[in-house]
Computed example of a mutant assay.
Amino acid sequence: MTPSVFSRIVAREIPAAIVHEDEHTIAFMDAGQVNPGHVIVATRRQVETILDLDDELAGAVFRTAARVARAVQAAFAPQGITVLQANHAAGWQTVPHFHLHVLPRHEGDGVELVWPRKDPGLPALHALAERIREADRA
């Protein structure tokens, strides 16, 4: 796998404003700040998507994200915080390295996410849930 830009930050080949790092994760300011305080939380080891995380690494990333979110709240007092994670191009992933965006939010900040609700009904939801349970057992 070609080293991602985030792997290069971990290796200190590319400069970054690092907020936090530990054995499993690194958190740094997003160079393309959507709002002041926008932080990327990434795995130190390059794995591409959430599908590639083991339980230990998944827990570590979300612990770091919660820690960073609390610090962002204290430092910037945003009206809200969005934590966003994307997988593969169809899911909006642009860097092939697992990461979360911790994004401070304010009313009218221009950040949008279109969520076209489908409302399939409870019987269809039960059928979809069963497919997931079956896949989880496999």
Rank of each mutant, 00 (worst) to 15 (best):
His24Phe: 15
Ala71Arg: 14
Thr94Met: 10
Gln73Asn: 13
Leu122Tyr: 12
Val114Asn: 02
Val114Phe: 03
Arg131Trp: 04
Ile132Leu: 10
Val111Asp: 11
Phe98Leu: 07
Val83Arg: 06
Met29Glu: 05
Ile14Leu: 15
Leu113Cys: 02
Leu125Ser: 08
Glu56Cys: 02
His126Glu: 11
Pro36Lys: 05
Pro78Trp: 01
Arg131Cys: 03
Ala11Gly: 02
Leu100His: 08
Arg12Ile: 06
His38Gln: 07
Asp54Ser: 08
Pro104Phe: 08
Leu122Asp: 11
Ser4Gln: 01
His126Phe: 06
His24Pro: 12
Leu113Gly: 00
Arg45Pro: 05
Val5Phe: 03
Pro36Cys: 03
Gly108Gln: 04
Thr94Lys: 07
His126Ala: 10
Ala17Leu: 01
Pro36Phe: 00
Phe62Trp: 15
Arg70Ser: 09
Phe6Cys: 13
Pro15Leu: 00
Ala129Gly: 03
Arg117Val: 00
Gly80Gln: 03
Glu134Ser: 13
Pro15Arg: 00
Gly37Val: 13
Trp92Ser: 14
His88Lys: 14
Val102Leu: 01
Glu48Asn: 13
Pro96Asn: 14
Leu125Phe: 11
Asp136Tyr: 06
Arg131Tyr: 05
Phe6Ala: 07
Arg117Ser: 02
Val114Ser: 00
Gln73Met: 11
Pro36Tyr: 00
His20Ala: 15
His38Tyr: 12
Ala60Cys: 11
Ala11Met: 03
Arg44Lys: 15
Ala31Val: 10
Pro3Val: 05
Glu107Ile: 03
Pro15Glu: 00
Thr82Ile: 04
Ala42Arg: 04
Asp119Phe: 08
Arg105Ser: 10
Arg8Glu: 12
Gln85Gly: 04
Ala124Arg: 10
Ala27Asp: 06
Gly91Ile: 13
Ala86Asp: 06
Lys118Glu: 14
Thr94Glu: 11
His20Ser: 14
Arg117Ala: 07
Leu103Thr: 07
Ile40Leu: 15
Ala42Thr: 04
Ala135Leu: 09
Arg137Val: 01
Ala86Lys: 05
Thr82Leu: 09
Ala75Ser: 11
Val95Glu: 03
Leu57Val: 15
His99Phe: 01
Pro104Tyr: 08
Val41Phe: 06
Val47Met: 10
Gly59Ser: 08
Thr82Asp: 11
Lys118Met: 15
Glu21Ile: 14
Arg67Ser: 10
Pro104Leu: 05
